[in-house]
Amino acid sequence: MVSSLLIVLNILILLAWVAFGEWGLWIFVFLSSVLTLIVSLGTNTNITTMANTTLNGSNNTGMAMTYRVSTLNINIQIFIFFAVGLFVTIFKNGMVSYVLSIGRQIDTLEEEKNALVAEHSSIKGTNDALKEKVIRYAALKDVTGKLSSTLSLDSVATIVIDSVSELVERVDVSNLFLVDDEAHELALKAARGKEGTVSVKSKKGDIFDIWVLKQRQPLLVSDTDKDFRFNIDLIPQELRRDFKSVIAAPLISQKKVIGILRVESREPGAYVSDDLRLLATISDLAATALENAKLYHRIEELAITDGLTGLYCNRYFKERLDEDISKTVRLKQPLSLLMFDIDGFKGYNDKYGHIAGDIVLKSVGGLVK
């Protein structure tokens, strides 16, 4: 009976530890010891009584031996309870320390893993950005080759506007404005939308283009409705377009703004600083190409026009006359030719001098043009 009780109590001690922790463990150890002591004392009393009844002739020495054996058994049983409790406590503390150590190692490994993942993501992002830049710079090399292959102003403008639409992402409309040297204002040279050519109502630019022209620096607007520098209400209603994001860069040649390259999107926050830098790079290439095309066009004009009147020279007149006569004969169309003279010009020139005569020739040339 005592053995069965010991097994049951030890099981209860373990269950108490699981259910209530260390305090429950030692409370059950104490209660189990008290219960075992009470049961053992009662059992020993019965055994002693039975021994006296059976052995009437026994002496007191036998009784003392029986009591000492019973006391020893009780001490051993109580010792077993406390030994189990102590073992369980030591085991539990060791397991807790081990689990905490494993937990700290797991946390450390998790932190290292997160750091490696973050580093990998950063490196991957950097690699992707570098790849994109390499692709863009390769495309810029092709743009440079195309711009170098022509000296036609219209061809250069077409190459520039097409390149911007292809290289800059999220482009709804791209515009190229050139400065009219005579009128001292912007004039739209080329425009392109997602589907190709697009009609732009503001041929002379709007508040964003004027800002770039005056400030002589690139412009990035993430949201036209929230940018404090610009008031959209200042744009006439008939000239407004549906856009939210704008980037623009000046075309500067010989410290002079010769035009503006602009890109816009209907989505707010469509562009970042990298897009603006790319546009500025294209603008630098475009400025050089456009200036070369203008110089070439100017040289061509000087070769076929009179420097004083601005009218075509005699050689070019004869070349075009032969071409037009051949064309009218081939197409069987009429051809008109007007010739006139300035009456009294020689006398005027002799009387007032060559400078005054040049003024007359230049004025008449302006009227003819």
Rank of each mutant, 00 (worst) to 15 (best):
S148K: 13
N46H: 15
L178Q: 05
V29P: 09
I106Q: 12
N114T: 04
V164N: 01
V221W: 00
L116C: 07
L234R: 07
A115E: 14
S202R: 04
I282C: 03
T48V: 08
A51H: 08
V173N: 00
G357E: 03
G42I: 11
R229W: 02
V29H: 03
D180A: 05
G259Q: 02
V156K: 01
A190F: 01
E267G: 05
S32Q: 05
I252C: 06
G310K: 08
S273C: 03
E110Q: 14
I282R: 05
S32T: 10
Q254M: 08
R241A: 09
Q217G: 04
K113Y: 11
A16L: 04
K226Q: 09
L100W: 10
G269M: 03
Q237M: 06
D275G: 01
A138Q: 15
M95A: 15
G205P: 02
E132S: 12
L6W: 06
L220Q: 02
S155T: 06
K133T: 10
L331W: 09
T158I: 06
H120R: 15
N60L: 14
L147C: 04
D284M: 13
A287G: 07
G62P: 09
L147A: 02
H297S: 14
T108E: 14
S283F: 03
L5Q: 09
E166S: 13
L9T: 03
Q254L: 11
D172N: 12
G94A: 11
K92D: 12
I299M: 15
V360Y: 02
I282G: 01
G125A: 15
A51P: 05
E300G: 06
K351Q: 13
L116Y: 06
I38D: 13
G103P: 07
I123Y: 13
G62C: 03
E291M: 08
I7Q: 12
M1K: 14
E182P: 04
L15H: 10
D181T: 04
V246W: 00
D181K: 11
K141Y: 12
K124F: 06
I260R: 00
N44A: 15
L220S: 01
G269N: 06
S174C: 08
D223M: 06
I38Q: 11
A19S: 13
W23P: 05
V2S: 05
L308K: 05
T45P: 11
I27L: 15
D128H: 11
D128L: 15
L72S: 14
A286Y: 03
F345C: 09
V18S: 10
M50D: 13
L86A: 15
L279Y: 00
Y316I: 03
G307C: 07
D358I: 04
K318L: 10
E111V: 07
A286T: 06
S326E: 15
F345G: 07
T49H: 12
A19C: 12
T150S: 09
F208M: 03
D209S: 10
S152E: 07
D343Q: 10
L335H: 05
G357V: 00
A293G: 08
L109R: 15
G42R: 14
T43Y: 13
A191E: 02
